[in-house]
């Protein structure tokens, strides 16, 4: 059976896997973005807190993903839970780092001006600092998403959802006639998803970054 026949036969299963993969990554990205930006907002004004947040999140990233999921299984069990936790944790670093860098990069004289014309702390954050820091934050989200696409494949190890299942099935049955097709289908599926997400981010950037600061 060649690859195209394989795709034709299994497209139902593959689409379900792809959908679950995308959905898992998307949901984890939403959570990681909220947590990541929150951490950034809470820590960027203090030198050590900001550095601590960056160091902590980058330490998480150094843990091999397989090991991380392996460590999570005894604590939260198999399935969706370890997948979501691991993906969210991995997704944090680029977002936290870019949020801190972006927020610290806002010209202090602008913050001064915002204060001077009577904007409250919240108004300064939501109307001035975050919109100006948004382009680097969005870049962080993009990088995170690309990374999570790959890491999500490992989730199949913990019986999680997604295209990883396809890859693991293929690896598990190496030598059988569909093994290569399975690995290939899973991998290519992830690449296609990653490209689609990236295109979506370009669109989001167009829609959400003010023309006044777009490069």
């Amino acid at each position: 059976m060649n690859f195209w026949d394989y795709l034709g036969n299994r497209h139902q299963q593959l689409l379900t896997d792809a959908y679950q993969h995308a959905s898992a990554v998307f949901q984890c990205m939403v959570v990681a973005t909220l947590i990541g930006v929150l951490i950034g907002v809470l820590t960027y004004r203090s030198e050590w807190a900001g550095n601590l947040a960056t160091t902590a999140t980058s330490t998480i990233l150094t843990i091999p993903s397989l090991a991380m999921i392996g460590l999570l299984i005894p604590v939260v069990g198999l399935g969706v839970a370890p997948t979501v936790i691991a993906l969210t944790l991995y997704g944090l670093l680029p977002i936290v780092r870019n949020a801190i860098v972006g927020l610290r990069g806002v010209d202090p004289s602008l913050v001064d001006a915002a204060k001077g014309i009577g904007m409250s702390r919240a108004a300064r954050l939501f109307k001035v600092e975050l919109p100006i820091a948004w382009p680097p934050i969005l870049t962080g989200i993009r990088v995170s998403t690309q990374m999570l696409m790959g890491i999500a494949a490992i989730a199949a190890y913990a019986s999680g959802p997604g295209l990883g299942n396809e890859i693991f099935r293929g690896i598990g049955s190496l030598g059988s006639k569909n093994a290569l097709n399975q690995v290939l289908a899973g991998t290519l599926g992830i690449i296609v998803l990653a490209l689609l997400f990236d295109a979506a981010y370009v669109l989001i950037g167009r829609l959400t970054i003010s023309r006044g600061i777009r490069v």
Binding site: K115, G116, I213
Partner: peptide, 28 residues
């Protein structure tokens, strides 16, 4: 915050917010 809304403030290099239009800046 209440005090500053009654006191206009203009600074060096204008302090305009780059992501807002001229009209949005003035309307703040």
């Amino acid at each position: 915050v209440k005090l500053r809304r009654k006191v206009g403030y203009a600074i060096q290099s204008s302090g305009l917010f780059p992501h807002m239009t001229v009209a949005q800046n003035i309307a703040l």
